[in-house]
Design a protein around this nucleic acid. Structure first.
Length: 478
DNA sequence: TTTTGAGTTGTTCGA
DNA sequence: GTCGAACAACTCAAA
């Protein structure tokens, strides 16, 4: 009798069955395939999944397990360390091979290298695949052979290159091995928060591959052509909201790429998908950037550490309605509209002059889509210290931004209900509202809703001065 | 090697 | 109300 060939497929940030290169390869070359997920946050420090991401992961694993059951399989859940666990599984079921889709975070890539070497040395067949990016980050270079630091140049290169591989079909069935290894219940990973805090997340999201596909279809059918304008409106549903699904790999960027029919109207959205790509590319080539600025001169910037102000920002009590709305949306739903992310981030970095790393940490813990590459790029972009960043003197005015992108104030009214009865004219500047207006809106200004914690005009000037100082110091050095 | 043109998302000021 | 320039040079990438 012929020996049964068994392979492990190690699931990580690719919690899907469709367009999953590692799974596809294993099924085509092996008799039995065992899907495995190993939870080992200690191998991701200091960027282990935050609270919101853990909640998402719990439900995403549940969904993946359900989809696997429909194919006659189950997801084998274990706790790390990854290498040790893989060896245990291999011995237990006599597997000959391990396959996985790569992650591109610097620390994880180092672990992967080790895992690959040790497994190979033990005579196990090992192969990793690209399941989460359109292009291999190492392969795109400018004419000088160096990595791009300007998005448009990167974009031009990408669209002039060979298109990414077409997405792979999901398997129709999965042959289980004769003996299944022991596994944990998903609950045993303790991913769900103990406090009731997850209610807002549950109300806002349905994690999982099916939901991801449904959302993509819906977005393409109804929003994508108006995306370039509507994406800036936090009071409308103009974005795809695919970020958490992309982060956990519940949908692949290749699927998105090929589902979007390319014409003039859809380019703005594809550009965003390529921005995600660019973020991973930069993290790959500049692995220190989650902690330190890409532009070195910013290490000399005179940031302020003020725990009280940071807390007020985190809680959405800055006194600037659009900033507070965003921070509260984040806290309740685990997500914030991108336009508002920029406004809120600019406020932290420039109005409060608190280091961008503090903001990045808070976002990391509270976002369901927290992604090291995207989060790093976003914060460094706002702070002016990253690739292709906004110049530092470009400072968002929270009132103007609010009036421009939430003109009816509906976004603010939704998330800052104590302001909801203010007329449009004052919804983004309650400090200007005359007493009778406040009274008829039922608002005790400074009590129900906080007075501004800083004056934007003054803090803007201070930030510009600090920037000027940093530049001068740099020039003296040269 | 040198030159040239361009660079996600802004605000303010003055004409 | 609308428009263009200034902000402040600098770095990047291609020719």
């Amino acid at each position: 009798m012929k020996e049964t060939k068994t392979a492990l497929v190690w699931f990580r940030s690719d919690l899907r069955l469709g367009d999953n290169p590692a799974l596809d390869y294993a099924i085509r070359h092996f008799d039995a395939v065992i899907p495995v997920f190993i939870f080992s946050p200690e191998e991701e420090t200091p960027w282990e999944p935050g609270s919101a991401a853990r909640w998402w992961l719990h439900h995403s694993l549940t969904s993946l397990d359900q989809d696997l059951r429909a194919l006659g399989s189950r997801l084998v859940i274990r706790k790390g360390p990854a290498l040790k666990t893989l060896f245990e599984l291999i011995r237990g079921i006599k597997a000959q091979a391990v396959f996985w889709n790569r992650r591109y975070e610097p620390a994880i890539m180092q672990w992967d290298e080790q895992v690959k070497n040790k497994l190979s040395q033990a005579g196990i067949q090992v192969q990793s695949f690209n399941g989460s990016l359109l292009f291999e980050p190492g392969q795109i270079k400018n004419q000088q052979g160096a990595p791009y630091k300007v998005f448009t140049a990167y974009w031009n290169k990408v669209i002039a290159s060979e298109p990414p591989p077409k997405p792979l079909k999901a398997p129709g069935q999965l042959t289980a091995p004769a003996r299944r290894p022991q596994f944990l219940e998903i609950k045993a990973l303790c991913l769900e928060p103990k406090v009731k805090w997850a209610a807002g997340l549950r109300k806002s999201w349905v994690p999982g591959e099916k939901a991801a596909q449904k959302n993509l279809r819906k977005f393409i059918a109804s929003c994508i052509t108006a995306y370039s304008i509507e994406r800036d409106r936090p009071d409308h549903e103009g974005t795809s909201r695919l970020s958490p699904y992309l982060h956990f790999g519940e949908i692949s960027p290749r699927r998105v790429w090929y589902s979007v029919r390319k014409n003039r109207n859809t380019i703005p959205y594809l550009r965003q998908i390529v921005w995600r790509e660019f973020a991973h590319y930069l993290l790959y080539h500049f692995p220190h950037t989650p902690e330190r600025p890409l532009r070195k001169e910013f290490e000399k910037f005179s940031w302020k550490t003020d725990k009280t102000l940071l807390k007020k920002w985190q809680k959405g009590r800055t006194g600037y309605p659009v900033v507070d709305a965003g921070m509260r949306e984040l806290w309740v739903t685990g997500w914030m509209h991108n336009r508002v992310r920029m406004i809120a981030a600019s406020f932290l970095v420039k109005d409060l002059m608190i280091p961008w790393q503090e903001g990045a940490k808070w976002f990391w813990d509270t976002l369901v889509d927290s992604d090291l590459a995207n989060n790093t790029l976003g914060w460094q972009w706002v702070a002016g210290c990253g690739a292709d960043a906004a110049p530092f003197f470009r400072i968002f005015n929270p009132v103007i931004q609010g009036e421009k992108f939430d003109p009816g104030g509906n976004y603010v009214r939704k998330w800052v209900p104590e302001l909801s009865r203010l007329p449009d004219k004052f919804i983004h500047r309650p400090w200007d509202a005359p007493k009778p207006v406040l009274a008829s809106a039922g608002l005790a200004y400074g009590k129900d809703y906080p007075a501004r914690i800083v004056d934007h005009n003054a803090s803007r000037r201070k930030a510009l001065l600090a920037y000027e100082k940093m530049r001068r110091a740099l020039l003296r050095h040269v």
